[in-house]
Design a protein around this nucleic acid. Structure first.
Length: 669
RNA sequence: GCCGGCGUGGCGCAAAUGGCAGCGCACUCGACUUGUAAUCGAGUGGUUGGGGGUUCGAGUCCCCCCGCCGGCUCCA
């Protein structure tokens, strides 16, 4: 009998000789945790037959590859359940995604929540049944014949190969590489239960799906284009154990608990009155205190870093946005024009042509006009103009979301005009400045993304892009942070670096962007006089650190779960008297704190002390100062902190110092 | 913009099949004066998102609009 020699990778790599026809599963039989195998670098089913020279490595369910396959296989089970319950359902694609999977279906009626329950129930039965996933190579013709009723799959067959991924994100899990394969789900008795065009690999059987849950359904355009029909997508999640599923559900609950929309209402920070309009927020006094503190600190830091403050109006005549190009490129994202000053005579004949005014979608054209207001010398560069500039963007109604996606927002926007030779040094110091400042607000886990030219959509010369991209890359690399490429992600006018921050529960948010611009200095014909008297074109850098103030407040609210560090907290100290007779003592302490700019309140309501503590606790106030007879007699106060710990009988002066210190050093308490 | 779900005092929620709009918190008033997460009692507050329709009767059923939520698309 012929044999093949393979290398088994494990704790102790071993050369093995096994009979021809041995599968990866046979080889890994002792390893009960192996659900897949990596055979000479490629992920395979356990039924994969080994060839001479193969290097075989077991893959467990909890590895990244194992998780992806678990989720992909669960998506298959879902599709099978859907087609059993809804025979008219036609299959789209069903790839694994972060933490789960989805599958798209063309169904006559969209799924309702009750449908998901039925589907999930049927899935549990299928999992229990232990159907096998069996791989079968088919020819194009054969696949077309078998999938004659699946128009979307047929479309994918036509696209197989390198185009598949471009065709639709996730499509490559259906048709990959060179050959087409169909996976049969077979029952214990060998009969065929279901089949799907799929590249695989898959788990050996549905029984290897330990824990899953369907999450929600939503519409999704076929192949990601709004010109295509909408399919119904069902999202689910799957995990190697019930405990991990529970942990995942707990993470979702935690994220919901931190939702800034909810905390914004609970902590009385901001709201979105219907009367104003979608995506337009108002800040209440408490949210205002938070915002003012954030902005004031940012102003102070910018001042120290050599920025100059400018102000510009919220609307402008159309000519400005014609020159800037916004009306050519982004008119759809702008509020429509206000047509003003038109006059007609009694007969309706035009006597005076009107003017179109637009709400500004960006601040840059205004800052450019400030630059251009007079001749500029090289001696003034870099010129750093800063503004908290409110901008308005007509976001589509379906995308507006809390403070993170709004129609009116305030950018902490700066435009830096510098000589080309200054660009590298300016970018490097700018990036340091941005990261330092973000750290002061309590974000400290970053990576960078370098967005480079979209070959379809750009202005300027190849050479200028190349040079600018290299300069940005060098600045990014100098930061020592992880740098993720984003090819084609740049705006048409220049490459950019964006700073991505991870929050307290590991979610990433795009924060600051630093963007080079070759376009606007050209369009507005910006110049400066160089030392040799020649006219030179400055380079322009756009940068926002918070992105938008509103969004940043949303992110910080979620990052801190509403429990802001003392320097940011809307109310920093609440005085809680044990009885009415202690109010006066606390009022004196509060007055001293207020003299130092501390935001302090004394709870003089007729609630009982315990209730006052509960109230302050729910408002997530960093310092509760409690005073009763003992404290008053000793000239002291008693601290209670958010975590419930206390420090009693602290002399007033010490208490003041302690609070002021915590605020000044911006520490979390 | 597209698909689906949802919209009841400030907030969180009730109100079988169409049949008296209710509860808790918050708020106001009164009593109580208390050492680390809810004292007791009374009271105010709603054109059930808006408009139209069906019906003897609509929070509930139908249509249009507004808003929110989840996705898709978009995101300078």
């Amino acid at each position: 009998m012929s044999e093949v020699r393979v290398v088994l990778v494990g704790a102790q790599p071993a050369q093995r000789s096994v009979p021809t026809g041995t599968t990866a599963g046979d080889l890994l039989a002792e390893d009960r945790t192996a659900v897949l195998a990596r055979v000479s670098g490629t992920l395979r089913d356990l039924t994969h037959e080994l060839a001479d020279g193969d290097v075989v490595e077991p893959v467990t369910l909890d590895s990244p590859d194992g998780l992806a396959v678990l989720r992909h296989s669960t998506a298959h089970v879902m599709a099978q359940a859907v087609q059993e319950l809804f025979p008219q359902a036609r299959l789209g694609i069903g790839p694994p995604i972060t933490d789960g999977f989805y599958y798209d279906f063309d169904v006559p009626e969209p799924f309702r929540p009750e449908d998901l329950e039925r589907i999930e129930k049927r899935m549990r039965e299928l999992v229990k049944e232990g159907q096998s996933f069996a791989r079968r190579v088919v020819s194009d013709e054969q696949a077309r014949a078998e999938l004659a009723d699946e128009p979307y799959k047929l479309e994918l067959i036509g696209l197989k190969g390198p185009g598949a991924e471009a065709a639709a994100e996730g499509a490559s899990v259906e048709v990959g590489g060179g050959e087409l394969t169909i996976y049969d789900n077979t029952r214990r008795d060998g009969s065929l239960a279901w089949k799907d065009l799929c590249r695989g690999p898959h788990l050996p059987s549905t029984r290897h799906i330990p824990a899953f849950q369907l999450m929600r359904s939503a519409a999704a355009y076929w192949r990601g284009s709004e010109h295509n029909p909408q399919l119904q997508r069902i999202y689910g999640t799957a995990w190697p154990s019930r405990d991990e599923l529970k942990a995942h559900q707990a993470r979702l609950a935690e994220a919901a608990r931190r939702d800034h929309r909810r905390l914004g209402a609970e902590l009385d920070l901001f709201s979105f009155p219907d009367e104003i309009g979608s995506g337009l927020a108002v800040f209440h006094p408490k949210g205002g205190a938070l915002r003012k503190t954030m902005e004031d600190y940012s102003r102070a830091r910018h001042e120290a870093a050599g920025y100059e403050f400018v102000y510009s109006p919220h609307i402008s005549k159309s000519a400005l946005f014609e020159v800037s190009g916004h009306l050519d490129w982004y008119a759809e994202g702008m509020y429509p024009a206000m047509h003003l000053d038109e006059e007609r005579d009694a007969a309706g004949t035009l006597r005076r042509a009107g003017q179109d005014y637009y709400l500004k979608p960006m601040n840059c054209p205004f800052h450019i006009l400030i630059y251009r207001a007079r001749g500029r010398s090289y001696r003034e560069l870099p010129l750093r103009l800063f503004e908290f500039g409110s901008v308005y963007r007509y976001e589509k109604s379906g995308v507006v979301h809390g403070l993170t996606r709004v129609r009116g927002m305030t950018q902490d926007d700066a435009h830096i005009f510098c000589a080309k030779e200054q660009m590298a040094a300016e970018l490097a110091s700018l990036l340091r400045f941005v990261l330092d400042l973000l750290r002061d607000y309590g974000l400290d886990d970053f990576y960078l993304e370098l967005s480079t030219k979209d070959p379809e959509k750009f202005v300027g010369t190849e050479q200028a892009w190349e040079e600018a991209t290299q300069t940005l890359r060098a600045a990014a690399e100098a930061s020592g942070l992880e740098l993720v490429p984003d090819p084609g992600g740049a705006a048409f006018y220049g490459p950019k670096i964006s700073v991505q921050a991870r929050d307290a529960i590991g979610r990433t948010w795009q924060m600051s962007t630093i963007q080079l611009d070759f376009n606007l200095p050209e369009r507005f014909d910006l110049t400066y006089t160089a030392p040799d008297g020649s006219r030179q074109r400055p380079v322009m850098i756009h940068r926002a650190l918070f992105g938008s103030v509103e969004r940043f407040i949303g992110v910080l609210t979620e990052h801190y779960a509403g429990a802001f560090p003392a320097w940011l907290a809307p109310v920093q100290v609440v005085g809680i008297p044990v009885a009415d007779s202690h109010v006066e003592h606390l009022q004196r302490v509060a007055a001293s704190l207020r003299e130092h700019g501390v935001r302090v309140e004394v709870d003089t309501s007729d609630d009982r002390m315990q209730k006052k503590i509960r109230t302050a606790q729910k408002q997530k106030v960093p310092f509760m100062l409690i005073a009763g007879d003992e404290d008053v007699s000793k000239g002291a106060v008693s601290f209670r902190f958010r975590d419930g710990t206390q420090d009693n009988g602290v002399p007033v002066q010490q208490a003041l110092d302690r609070i002021l210190e915590a605020i000044a050093t911006r520490v979390q308490v």
